[in-house]
Design a binder for these strands. Sequence first.
DNA 1: CATGAATGAGGGTTCATTCAT
DNA 2: AATGAATGAACCCTCATTCAT
Lengths: 191, 191, 191, 191
Amino acid sequence: MSPRTQEQLNEIKKDKKQLILNAGLEVFADKGFHSGSVNLIAKQAGISKGLIYTYFKDKNDLLKEIIAGGVQEMLSIFENPENELITEEQFLFYINESFEILKNNLYFWRLYFSLVMQKGILELFGNYFMEMLAPFINTMTKYYSNKNIENPYAHVALLGSVMDGVGIDYLMQPDEYPLEDVKKIIIEKFK
Amino acid sequence: MSPRTQEQLNEIKKDKKQLILNAGLEVFADKGFHSGSVNLIAKQAGISKGLIYTYFKDKNDLLKEIIAGGVQEMLSIFENPENELITEEQFLFYINESFEILKNNLYFWRLYFSLVMQKGILELFGNYFMEMLAPFINTMTKYYSNKNIENPYAHVALLGSVMDGVGIDYLMQPDEYPLEDVKKIIIEKFK
Amino acid sequence: MSPRTQEQLNEIKKDKKQLILNAGLEVFADKGFHSGSVNLIAKQAGISKGLIYTYFKDKNDLLKEIIAGGVQEMLSIFENPENELITEEQFLFYINESFEILKNNLYFWRLYFSLVMQKGILELFGNYFMEMLAPFINTMTKYYSNKNIENPYAHVALLGSVMDGVGIDYLMQPDEYPLEDVKKIIIEKFK
Amino acid sequence: MSPRTQEQLNEIKKDKKQLILNAGLEVFADKGFHSGSVNLIAKQAGISKGLIYTYFKDKNDLLKEIIAGGVQEMLSIFENPENELITEEQFLFYINESFEILKNNLYFWRLYFSLVMQKGILELFGNYFMEMLAPFINTMTKYYSNKNIENPYAHVALLGSVMDGVGIDYLMQPDEYPLEDVKKIIIEKFK
DNA sequence: CATGAATGAGGGTTCATTCAT
DNA sequence: AATGAATGAACCCTCATTCAT
């Protein structure tokens, strides 16, 4: 029989790669990068260990692509006319949107926070994370500066920390954390 | 030389154990639990690998005792006449104290946050962490309730998250994070 | 286009097989049998991994056929009226010819010498190599016997070893080894 | 009980290390470096796989130490007053000695010849082998130069090749190769 | 005939844990 | 109490081989 066409192969490749990326995300998010074994990821994806290495150079590479994918998704959501000053309404939108992103990407954020604490790993990603967060930080800094608030930098740092902290606590107990109520208070206090 | 008394022996034992606990805390905080090897801990403590197993059943047990120790320390600091209602002044004291604790226990908190995201590990500790945080939560809840603030539970959850978020961000970049400025804003917004 | 005739198909088949054999020879000679991967051979031959298994049972089989081909080529060059006694002139010719063969089949001889030391691999070939060398040995033995030289067997063994040793040393540093000068001395000493 | 003294430990270490070196030499000589697995070496030495890594950084390191040991042994045997011109008697001694060394270190020489053919591996050893052979080459060059023989360099190259070739052929069939007879002829032709 | 995705055994290596001393 | 040599399970990764297409 004739071999598969290039198109078919590309389709397979894309699907399988995504399958592995998803499995990797779940496993790494649950167990952490070091404890999440390639074996487990293969099992989770329903494939053999070896196949992972058809799509990724090594375990590091798999992690990098998982993160890159997540970061891309974040950026695509947050992409805004860069140096635009935002209104209070837009501020609310951003906060809301951030919470939606958090809720819709539990695994990614769990992975993010577990990586962020580990010295050696963070270096793998260079400025990925910084780049991901930059638009948010820039926009917020401008927002606070415009409101003539004293020390806008500290305000933004705090707001970022708040989002981080809420994220972590919510991820730890998604069913019990009063996310919506907390959101309201944040908006009230930080707008 | 005369043979050591039982008391002296106990003292030695306690010292050695503490030595290992300290070394373990530093290594786990720096490398993470999985990557922080027993060998490294032994080296850091200046003892042999085998001796660790005289004091601890296994690596998990070592981690548990490290955490338990840290939690005890937290509790001892925060120990307050339990159901006492606190004044605003005391509220300020608590916040301040929390920041001091954070700054003085970088290793512990780094370890804490690196563990907290990992499902498998978290189960090792059952309610340890919850118990550690309970007094803080209780006191704050009472404080907000007394001020007739709407939804005190959500307020406390948020305050806890804020402390978590600030903790993480500070730990990531201790030299660059504007901790004092952030503290001021927190007090202003949450008192 | 008209469909290919059976003959043409056979021709293609033969070509493909030869393509693989050549690629295999180069790769095995360069990397060694164990480290020369099937994948690399396929790439070198410009075909797919799978196709190799249409022509060869397995990697061992490919090696065997590569060696068999090389041995055949040697034999065809050396083929002489079997039990004929050779003159000194013919002796010179043989030596010269041997050097030419060496120079013209660097890959084969590199592979040959890399295999010859390994017990496990050598068994794959049974008497291949012996058969390859037999005509040379026979001819030379007769030559020396005829000259009434004492212990012609040892002389032939030595001559064979000389050719082996020169081969190896030349293969190790083809550009620096004084092959022509060495040849002159050999002829002088062994004719 | 008290732990072992440093002396005892050193003794153990030395013995075990030598055990592994010997096992490694045999396995690598028989199977080649790449095909000779750490597993097999452990089995041959009667120890666990892991123990090898107590004594050697990795597989490469094991090979290096095996070779270093062998080279040292060679050098110690051949050590001669360096720039001394040798007599014919001494020449005979050297040739004889070389054959003894060959016979007494079959594994080492099998390993040597199997390595020498492999491009990538040879580089691991830099000038080890060259240094090992240098005294032999120097001494012989001087010997031939002194005899006013034309092209002493080619003579030495040939003599070296002869020793190599005889070595290989003998190693391939130690029981059948007429080593003593061959030695006589070599001496006769090359002295 | 031809492809390359997929498998799984086996490779080198690390490391928690044990145990003779 | 103290040591560190020794073990073996589990890790990441490679590669010969198979098979659906």
